[in-house]
Each structure stands twice: as structure tokens, then as C-alpha cells.
Design a protein around this nucleic acid. Sequence first.
DNA 1: AAAAACTTTGCGGGTTCCCGCAAAATGAAC
DNA 2: GTTCATTTTGCGGGAACCCGCAAAGTTTTT
Lengths: 244, 244
Amino acid sequence: MTSHILIVEDDELHRRFLRDMLPESDLGEVDVTEAQSGEEAINLIKSRHFDNVVLDLQMPGKSGVDVARAVWAKNSTTPILFWSNHADEAYARGIYRVAPKEANYGYLLKSTSSQRLKSTISGVFRDGQTIVDRAVNFTQHYPANSAELTIAEYETLVDIAIGLTDHAVAEYRSMSVRSVQGRIKGIYEKLTLSDVSTLDGGAAAVNRRTRAIALALIGRKINSKILEMAEKDLRARGKGHYLD
Amino acid sequence: MTSHILIVEDDELHRRFLRDMLPESDLGEVDVTEAQSGEEAINLIKSRHFDNVVLDLQMPGKSGVDVARAVWAKNSTTPILFWSNHADEAYARGIYRVAPKEANYGYLLKSTSSQRLKSTISGVFRDGQTIVDRAVNFTQHYPANSAELTIAEYETLVDIAIGLTDHAVAEYRSMSVRSVQGRIKGIYEKLTLSDVSTLDGGAAAVNRRTRAIALALIGRKINSKILEMAEKDLRARGKGHYLD
DNA sequence: AAAAACTTTGCGGGTTCCCGCAAAATGAAC
DNA sequence: GTTCATTTTGCGGGAACCCGCAAAGTTTTT
């Protein structure tokens, strides 16, 4: 039986590498289709059937998480292998948020060996496993440890990272301003921002809010793609005017 | 005469592509050395001589801008070709800031054709040209137009993006707090943030400071690597305690 | 069902950010 | 050297952020 596989990959060398490697894997006969962008992929997904998808995460325009959402909207059990240069917790959380419970997927770094890639493809596409590279610093069962941001804290972190005020987050998430501030304080604690140093005159050297965003960015808990998706969600929920 | 070329590229497929392509270019005889990381590259640069460097920008650990700084510290006229998936103004400004006046360099996206890559290599390495891909949204002669951030505004944007307070920026840059606030207002105007919308109760929906950072991030004026470099510069100038 | 843990919430005070008003200082152009 | 443009600067007021104190509500564990 022929497997129909969609490769979504803007990098030509990587796309070619996958195209050549997939027939060598032990999936049996495969029919490979390629897309060079998230937009192209979404159009293909709407009009054609694919058994499996190999998906880069960071692409110009729509990201891999955008495409995954479209794949799983069409068929919530389609296995996806995320294959990326980036081990961002931001992407891992994004995937976790859009993945249906019944889906299985893989998340592998491009720096892993061809052998490892082949065995992961088999595991995800043929054997129905979920396999996440350990370099992706995010567990699925959380809080795996209490230093990780909860779902609620992460959601609030993204909200303040796109620039919303406490009042706007409160209205958007249907909670009080004080609640929002409580979650933000929790974020600061987990990013070890409870004490900030002061200047000679006694004023603080660091603004906690922007420092937390910087740390999350440098620690790859958030990235620009995730912020774009968050803005899109805001607009989809009728609150786009906040940003105008 | 043999050209000694250093390739700095974490992606194995891209490194291999360059290694195969360089002897085909019209540089004459070439001797190619490869580094898989910024750190490895910096060690090689210190101990060996290279006539030219091909440099990825976004790598784990030290970025291409870090490596460029080391290259030009050793020899301020070594031509460098920056070859990247990312057309970030952040990187362009970073390069511009570390490039000596007498250096020539290229900045090309990996999505351009092999033909174009070869001709750019010739132009930069043999003919001493500076060639920047037009997708890199940053001119060298600025302000090319008054909507672009000035050097001073950009420097302040990066300072607030890493989380410094107005007082800390003032002390760090030896200027008054009001001056810092004036520059920040200029940043907001150029990011079209002068008017922000309000919620039903009249409170603002958007915090300008964090919204400006989000827009700069999404617009690729800044990125996490640039923030890491800014933190390093802070520490190098004896102000690392601001962040502790 | 009860107890414990976690989250939400209101109030109020202190700090930082943001901006207007106005003037001084510096740099560029003539 | 003079004029013009740009940048810097001080003061003060309003808004947003941050947090302590305390209590209520919800969820989880026993």
C-alpha cells in the first residue's frame, strides 16, 4: 500500500535530502509531495489526502505550527514529524496546544543522524509513536517540575509579550486585573526575577516585565512566530482592535 | 595562488553544498576548511590564516556576528560572505556595527540561486565588493528615510528590550533619564505606536514599551541573538550587575 | 465529606513609565 | 560667525506596573 507523504520545507537542500531518504526508509512504497512554504502546504492539504507529513517549523510566512493546525483540522490522527533546526520550547508548547489528544507526532532536530531520522520516521508514521527529541526542553506532562511555567502562566507570558496591558489581558481572559498580576508575579519567580538589583540612587536597574520577556526570548520559551500566532488568535477572538 | 577559505556552518547539508561549490567558482585554487560552530570557528581563526570566510548567521552558541567580530579583530580587511536563512535587520545592524570601515562583505539569503551565490562570492572575495541582498531590509547609509530608527534609537531599543529601566539606560549611556525617554518616544513614533487603543473603561489596551519590543521582534529588527550580544556588551563594560 | 493546596480577587501604596511644557546645548548648514 | 535643526534636559502630573495584606473560591488529595 502506498503512503502519501507531504514534505513542507522551504530549504531546497533539506527538501531534496528528505525526498531521497524517504523511499529508503522501511515505510514501503511512498508517494512524496513537496511544499516550499506553509501557505502552499495549507492549499495542498485542503485539496489532497496525505497519510503523513514532515514539517519544518520555522519558515517565512506561516510556521509549522500553523500548518499542523490545518493538517489536524482535516484529520486529527494524521502523524506529523516536525523536523527543525530549532529546539524551541515555544514551538513545543505551540504544537502541544494545537495537537489533538489522539494525534501522535515526532519532533526531531535536523542535527540528528540520518539513521536516527529514519528510525523516528518509522516510529511515528508506521508505529504510531510520539517521539520528542530530548533537546526540546519541554515535557508533555507538566508541571513536570514546579520551575516550569504552567499553561496559565505561559498564556499570560505570551499575552504580555505581544504588548497587552494588565487590563487588556484581564478582559481578554475574563479574569480580574489582580489575577493577571498574580500570574505575572509567578512568571517572574520562575524566571528568577524576584529580586532585581538597584542603581546607586536606589532605583531599579531592571524593569521586570520587559526583563521577563527578554529571558523568555533568550531561553526560547517564546519567539517571534509564537507572538504572530498569538496576535492572530487575538484577532480571531474579536479583540484585534486592542492592537490597532 | 591558493585561497584559504573558512566555512562556518552548523548545517551539514549546507556545509557540504558550499564545500562542493567553492572549487567550482572562479576563485582559482581554493583550500577549504570547515567549522560547525561559532566557537570552533573562533578557535580556528586565532590559530590559522584565512583569506575569506563564508559565515552562517544563526547558529547555536555564538552567532555569525560574534565570529565576524573575531575575524575582523584579526584582520580588518578579510572579506566575509554572510549566508543565512534569515534576512533580519537585527543581523544587518549587528554586522554594520562590528564591520570596520575598510572591510567589504556580502549578505545573501540561502534561498537565492547557486548562480547568484557564485557571482556574489566572486564579487566579494575577488573583486572587493560589498553586496547585500535586497531582502535585508536595512540600508547602510541612514537614515535613508526618516521612518528608520537612528543608531541612537536602535541602541536604546535594544537596551530596553533586554529589560533595562530608563534610569539604567541613562547611567549606562551617560545621558539623562529624560533623554532616554525622548529616544523611546521616537521609537514609538517610528513603530507607529503614538496612539494606542483603549478598553471600554478607558484604560489603555497596550503597554507601549512591550508592544514596541514585540513589533521590533516580529519585524525582525531585533532577535534573541542580538539581545544575547547586548547582554555580553553590558558585562564587558562592567555593568553586568544590572542583570543579576 | 473534610482538609489541604492552589488560584482568584479587592484594596491600597510605592515605583516606573510616559508625556507635555519649556529651555538649553550641540551639531550641521550656510 | 551666524542661523537653523536636532538632541538633550528638568520639572511635574497622570497612567500602568508591582506587590503586600487578607480573604474568598475552586480544585485536588486524603
